[in-house]
Design a protein around this nucleic acid. Sequence first.
DNA 1: TTAATTAATAACTATGAGTTATCAAATAGA
DNA 2: TCTATTTGATAACTCATAGTTATTAATTAA
Lengths: 292, 292
Amino acid sequence: MSYQIELRHFTYFMAVAEELHFRKAADRLFISQPGLSRQIKQMEEIIGVALFVRNKRKVTLTAAGVYLKKELDYIFNHIDFTIRQTRLIDQGSNGEIRIGFLGSAMQTVIPELLVMVNKELPDIQFSLEEMSNHLQVEAVEKDQLDLGFVRLARVPEGIQKKTVHTDSFSLVVPLEHQLTSKTFKSIAQVSDEHFILFSSDYSSLYYDKIMSICEDKGFTPKVTHKSVHAQTIFKLVESGLGVAIVPTSLQRGFDLGVKFLEIPKIPQKAILSVIWKKDNRNPALQQILKFL
Amino acid sequence: MSYQIELRHFTYFMAVAEELHFRKAADRLFISQPGLSRQIKQMEEIIGVALFVRNKRKVTLTAAGVYLKKELDYIFNHIDFTIRQTRLIDQGSNGEIRIGFLGSAMQTVIPELLVMVNKELPDIQFSLEEMSNHLQVEAVEKDQLDLGFVRLARVPEGIQKKTVHTDSFSLVVPLEHQLTSKTFKSIAQVSDEHFILFSSDYSSLYYDKIMSICEDKGFTPKVTHKSVHAQTIFKLVESGLGVAIVPTSLQRGFDLGVKFLEIPKIPQKAILSVIWKKDNRNPALQQILKFL
DNA sequence: TTAATTAATAACTATGAGTTATCAAATAGA
DNA sequence: TCTATTTGATAACTCATAGTTATTAATTAA
């Protein structure tokens, strides 16, 4: 019989698929270029499919190679997770849940969830990472995350979504700003001010909603700064660089020189959803989902 | 640095986990028992977890081992599937076929083709776009399309052409028109009416054929309207703006207030051809061509 | 034309998977 | 108790092959 495929082949394939350059990939793997070339060639022979096109001076993936790369990405993540999980079970834990979240989820849902789960399932461990909407969806698909806390209208096929929190929007102004909760009637009162918002690529749904809040009141906001961190936005507001519109729940958890003025009578809500992969195999996830 | 885990370890682990007996597992794997023992030991060292309990004279799985066995079962299946799928993609069983077509092809050949291919090669995806003859030829040459459904007498060098459907022409008149299938004997009976035709730059072959049909009967049609959409043409006929001559198969698929009267005893036929580029590298195309 | 860059080929070296031979521990049967 | 038997682990080996260095062939850039 012929050779057997090994994880080594997959590792090498991924390096070449990412670098699209045999020597650079070999450097990254700390092996020689001919050794790498031979292993890739062997892999192509075992599978019986050309994975790369070595065209003149550049290397590209074939259609089959593109597919294989995507799947191996998932497979490697799943193997890593499985081994970590095996270690945790050995140590008597019930497993690990990997959670991604937007900064604004850390003020409301996540702490409650953690407290509740920790009480009911004390041997489940958590790993938490702040990530953008987009990266969370990718990570959930790749099996790098079990749960994501996102603000998204739609999610791809194969991903489940459930609303966990609905929040109003608040205007954020410096403490010394003339507006107060009594005099603040409409967002149109600050139509001439500069706006500081979360980046649209951090959360495009949030960004679109802010735009529609302003459009409804008949103006287009002058967006002068964007950030991915609430802390940064508050600091910029405090420094007088402009005003911001954020989910009201962000008022908690930060101690800054800004005022929150809840925007009255608008239909837009900041909706926080939790997402997970339909065919996620982490048994701890099934337990956690019962609490949501 | 320490050893790296390989699929070999997983394979051996699965054999021992199933046999719960090192010698039997070694026999099944066609290796010696000490070799197997050493690989399992190494695997346990890499992961850092005891997977088996060698108790007196019998071998059992630890809790961690039970979990790992279940997951590896899944992982092996997923790897197998991925490699099979990679091979299929290489052979074109999976992938995308980009098809261009004239509106009149959507009533006959394309639906049949799609149903047939979908049955035999369920993993091939289609992208469909309605385009003129001319644009289809261009797109096929540029490798923007894999297949084109056209009505053309000649195609440029490098393009392959094959007839897939031959159709008669029909006269299209309003429902309340005096002519019926019984009284309609010759196109000359409507020589004084206004004609609504497909634009010559949408399909010049069609246009030329209509002209020759009329010429053969000794008159030149008064063309008052042109359109690229059958739907539009039928609406204009329904509204009493004139009569039309179209391929008979267009009778299907539209629900409009017009009558189709097949034109008797004429040599002209509406010929639908499929075109593709000789050196198209889409592997899925080769598969599809077998059905044509 | 020459120089530089790339992957493939050829011939080698040495790591470690798999071998045989053996041991130690445990059981079962007298 | 004393064997005989079954088990996995250990020790010392050998050999298949992953990875090495040196080189070539092909292409591009200067």
